[in-house]
């Protein structure tokens, strides 16, 4: 199909970045500009009359990614919502400051918030389906965002929406444009939501448990997409998850949040390999108890691909010949779909 080929070309063009409209407009940014600064932020529940988040601090520059790990109720989502100006009723920022691209959010008018959201800071959440109108085609919903946020006319907005669907690696963006939310898988829906979130070229994207409900290969796809957007466009990321391993995949810096308290914060490697706090150590232990690593032979990690590609050793060769009756211990059936 010619459309499909054209779309592939579009994706390819997006990759090398020689089509200025294909990617969310990477504005020339000084690399050291702080796009999101959260300084000793405290959040208060005014009904329960208690402080829920006791001082969170981090800074994000273009292309950086910070991860926030914690259980439900740890305050990670509230922290994100504060940065987006969408704290639930009765919750207020009771201390500290938040700056978005140098602008303190404390004095923002609703009109100014509307201007910042989407075009400077944006977000995706756990359940993509609930953020889309089930009775509208997904493309039209993205085009609407583009029309309102980027001020494009209808026809241009449609074209841009298709470009965005291609930019999030949906394979047939024209087709997806015309589909309804119920026709798409969870992974595709989350891509659509990411497309909508980056439609107005934000500098910061907050992903709050954005991959939690997805299958493991789809989760990896979405995380890879985020990493890819970050590299291609300088998008800064806040990745929030209950799973330390998910955060470790994407982020340079990690904050471990427990009961509203940052118990540990530092470069990812340091937090993973020299955890100081008992809670961080517990998260690591827990992962090791039922994560896959426990069953991986010590050196298989590095060698797995070499083995699979080249078939090292006699055993692997025997398998490659079709797993004859003589090798019952390794009789692997193989049903190639290549």
């Amino acid at each position: 199909m010619t459309t499909t080929q054209a779309d592939r070309d579009l994706v390819a063009a997006t990759d090398v970045g020689d089509s200025p409209t294909a990617t969310p407009t990477p504005r020339p940014l000084p690399a050291d500009e702080v796009v999101l600064a959260v300084r000793d932020v405290r959040i208060r529940d005014n009904v329960g009359d208690r402080e829920i988040v006791h001082g969170v601090t981090f800074e994000l520059r273009p292309g950086q990614a910070v991860g926030i790990v914690g259980e439900s109720g740890s305050g990670k989502t509230l922290t994100c919502r504060a940065a987006l100006g969408i704290l639930p009723e009765h919750f207020t920022v009771s201390g500290g400051t938040i700056e978005i691209a140098g602008e303190d959010i404390a004095g923002l008018t609703p009109a100014r918030w509307t201007a910042l959201r989407g075009s400077t800071i944006s977000a995706v959440f756990q359940d993509p389906g609930s953020y889309l109108n089930p009775s509208l085609r997904v493309g039209a919903q993205i085009a609407e965002v583009v029309r309102v946020k980027a001020g494009l006319r209808r026809r241009a907005a449609r074209a841009r929406a298709v470009e965005l669907l291609a930019a999030v690696r949906l394979r047939d963006p024209e087709l997806v444009y015309g589909q309804y939310p119920h026709e798409l898988s969870g992974g595709m829906l989350q891509r659509v939501l990411i497309a909508a979130a980056i439609a107005a070229g934000p500098r910061v994207l907050i992903a709050d448990e954005a991959t939690t409900a997805l299958d493991v290969t789809v989760q990896a796809e979405v995380l890879d997409l985020l990493a890819d957007l970050r590299e291609r466009t300088g998008l800064a990321l806040v990745v929030v998850s209950h799973d330390l391993a998910v955060v470790a995949q994407v982020c340079d810096e990690v904050l471990v949040l427990r009961d509203g308290e940052v118990v540990e914060q530092g470069p990812t490697e340091q937090v993973l390999y020299q955890p100081r706090h008992a809670y961080t150590r517990m998260l690591i232990d827990e992962h090791e108890q039922y994560g896959l690593e426990r069953f991986l032979d010590a050196d298989a990690d590095a060698d797995a691909d070499a083995d699979a590609d080249a078939g090292t050793g006699a055993e692997a060769d025997a398998d490659a010949d079709g797993g004859r009756a003589g090798a019952p211990a390794r009789d692997r059936e193989f049903d190639g779909v290549r």
Binding site: V216, Q219, A220, E221, H287, A304, D305, D319
Partner: peptide, 15 residues
């Protein structure tokens, strides 16, 4: 050995 199995193993979030 199968590409899908390799993707599955390679997609498991790891520390």
């Amino acid at each position: 050995r199968h590409p899908y199995t390799r993707l599955l193993v390679g997609s498991a979030p790891t520390l």
